[in-house]
Simulated scan of single mutants.
Amino acid sequence: MSWLRFLLQLATVALAYFVASIPPILLFGKTNAGMLGSVVLSMVAALVVARFWLSRDGCLKHAWSLRPPENISRTLALAALGTGVIIALFAVGAAVIDALGLPPIDVSMVLAYVTQGPISFMLWVVLVAWFAAGLGEELLYRGFLLDRLMRLRGMRGRKWPAAIIQAALFGLPHLYQGWGGVLVTASIGLFLAWLRFANRGNLWACILAHGAVDTIMLSLAYSQSLGWLR
């Protein structure tokens, strides 16, 4: 794959994501419905365009390896390992961010919507933690992007350079959390690439770990808002 074709594919996916995020905000404003609609619709649009390119290049099944795992126990074990490691990366990352003198990761904007009530909490878990993040981001970054990078002229088959680049691109959209959020998210993206490699290319361990971590984080935030945790 040429770099020009790669950049074209990446740009169209990013454009679809951005454009689709706007209508729900225009219709509902920055309300819960507007933000949820924006997150979900933008992910759907990006996945549709990514699928178009993968299908056109005959790479869909390889890039989006969602076949039932050959070894379910191994996949579940890797997902559990991934969940634990990602939570540890958040903890270590917080210490590193503090040591670097960077502001702590700020996710207050998201949590303000999540903690509005039980229905809001459930919608954010299902639509964001599992669909947009767990499934969507894994298909986009560890699926589409990682596959495209590993087919690039001069990088073909080179796992780790591709993994590092996708991790950096995974971190940048989290700039709303501050640069600390970008660094931690990028490190998680690099680990998730390893997790896909460890599971022989199958994405299910990544999806399960990603969805589980986000669910845990949202649950802790919601429990804290109810006064269950201090």
Rank of each mutant, 00 (worst) to 15 (best):
residue 1 M to R: 04
residue 3 W to L: 08
residue 3 W to M: 12
residue 7 L to E: 08
residue 8 L to V: 15
residue 10 L to V: 14
residue 19 V to P: 15
residue 25 I to E: 12
residue 32 N to G: 10
residue 33 A to T: 07
residue 38 S to Q: 11
residue 42 S to E: 12
residue 43 M to N: 09
residue 43 M to E: 08
residue 46 A to P: 07
residue 47 L to H: 06
residue 52 F to S: 07
residue 57 D to V: 15
residue 60 L to A: 10
residue 60 L to I: 07
residue 65 S to W: 03
residue 70 E to R: 15
residue 72 I to R: 07
residue 72 I to Q: 07
residue 74 R to H: 09
residue 76 L to N: 03
residue 80 A to W: 01
residue 82 G to P: 04
residue 86 I to E: 00
residue 90 F to T: 02
residue 92 V to R: 13
residue 95 A to S: 12
residue 98 D to S: 15
residue 106 D to C: 01
residue 106 D to K: 02
residue 106 D to R: 02
residue 107 V to C: 01
residue 110 V to W: 04
residue 111 L to V: 07
residue 111 L to F: 08
residue 113 Y to Q: 10
residue 113 Y to N: 14
residue 113 Y to K: 07
residue 114 V to K: 12
residue 115 T to V: 04
residue 121 F to Y: 09
residue 122 M to E: 11
residue 127 L to P: 06
residue 129 A to W: 01
residue 133 A to R: 05
residue 136 G to V: 04
residue 137 E to W: 13
residue 141 Y to A: 03
residue 144 F to T: 04
residue 144 F to S: 14
residue 148 R to H: 08
residue 149 L to C: 05
residue 151 R to V: 04
residue 151 R to Q: 07
residue 152 L to S: 09
residue 154 G to R: 15
residue 156 R to V: 09
residue 156 R to D: 14
residue 160 W to S: 06
residue 167 A to D: 09
residue 169 L to T: 10
residue 172 L to G: 13
residue 176 Y to K: 00
residue 177 Q to K: 03
residue 178 G to P: 05
residue 182 V to P: 08
residue 188 I to D: 01
residue 189 G to C: 11
residue 190 L to T: 02
residue 192 L to Q: 00
residue 192 L to M: 06
residue 193 A to F: 12
residue 197 F to P: 01
residue 202 N to V: 06
residue 208 L to G: 02
residue 210 H to W: 04
residue 215 T to Q: 14
residue 219 S to P: 10
residue 225 S to H: 07
